[in-house]
């Protein structure tokens, strides 16, 4: 067995009342790579994500993180192990300030999160680190603003900064550029490239331009199973991928 895989799934299956959303998926995510999961709507990408982060429980199959079976662990537990996800809709804490969003992630390792008798001033010692993280995504100047008032692009950047605060070994990004304007897409994909240093990223992404720019390896999902895998050139020239996306087969176009 190759030790270079951070995350592996073995024969992962998820059924919803007779409908198989994820069918026998074997993913191998290499350490230090950016791995993209693409596929048409309803292919089961987000379901795979939810299985990996325990928001759903697999019907059968195994999930391995660094070779250890994490199939039966809970969401919060795997987050503490270093697998941290983002969400399709921007997952921020709207009525906390930008700084507090990041700080609440940093706070967990402090071990004082149940201390209701202490002043939250004890958290101020985390501020420097929080500002540093915000700076890395270009948000330091907005630290004291309320998150709900921020534009969408900034919320996504904030979400990445919050995820980075946990220093995860594996980052799972669910459609990081969804619903964004052109400039935001560029800046967020640059950001992902930047933060991919020293860590592994598995992302679901619709924007093929972003995928072509970022991904080292691509797995194409269709109707719950993996259609093909490889780098962008291999995948994009595969006729089955075109068919899955455009709904036309070679024979019809020929």
């Amino acid at each position: 067995m190759c030790a270079d895989y951070v995350l592996q799934t073995k024969n992962l299956v998820k059924e919803f009342k007779g409908f198989t959303a994820v069918d026998d998926v074997n993913l191998n995510v290499e350490r230090g790579s950016i791995h993209a999961l693409i596929g048409p709507n309803g292919a089961g990408k987000t379901t795979v994500f939810n299985l990996l982060t325990k928001f759903l429980i697999p019907t059968s199959g195994q999930i391995l993180f660094n070779g250890n079976d994490i199939t039966s662990m809970k969401s919060a537990e795997i987050a503490r192990k270093g697998v941290v996800r983002s969400f399709q809709i921007s997952a921020v804490f709207p009525h906390l300030t930008v700084l507090e969003n990041v700080r609440v992630a940093l706070q967990r390792k402090e071990g004082n999160s149940f201390h209701f008798w202490k002043s939250d001033k004890v958290l101020n010692r985390l501020n420097d680190r929080a500002i540093e993280l915000l700076d890395s995504v270009g948000l330091a100047s907005h630290a004291d603003s309320l998150t709900v008032d921020q534009p969408y692009g900034r919320k996504r950047a904030l979400e990445i900064a919050t995820t980075l605060a946990l220093d995860p070994e594996l980052m799972l990004l669910d459609e990081p550029t969804q619903g964004m304007g052109h400039e935001d897409v560029e800046s967020v994909s640059d950001l992902i490239k930047k933060v991919s240093k020293d860590r592994t990223i598995l992302m679901v992404e619709h924007n093929l331009h972003v995928v072509s720019k970022l991904a080292d390896k691509i797995s194409v999902l269709q109707r719950g199973s993996i259609l093909t895998e490889g780098d962008y050139e291999t995948v994009s020239s595969d006729s089955r991928v075109k068919e899955a996306y455009l709904g036309v087969s070679e024979e019809e176009t020929a």
Partner: peptide, 25 residues
């Protein structure tokens, strides 16, 4: 005190976005 404590911060995070709080561990 509870509201303005480290614990209170986590409570507010849960109120604001429970799945996210969960995914932060």
């Amino acid at each position: 005190r509870t509201i303005h404590s480290p614990f209170g911060q986590v409570l507010k995070a849960i109120r604001e976005n429970e799945p996210r709080a969960l995914s932060l561990g």
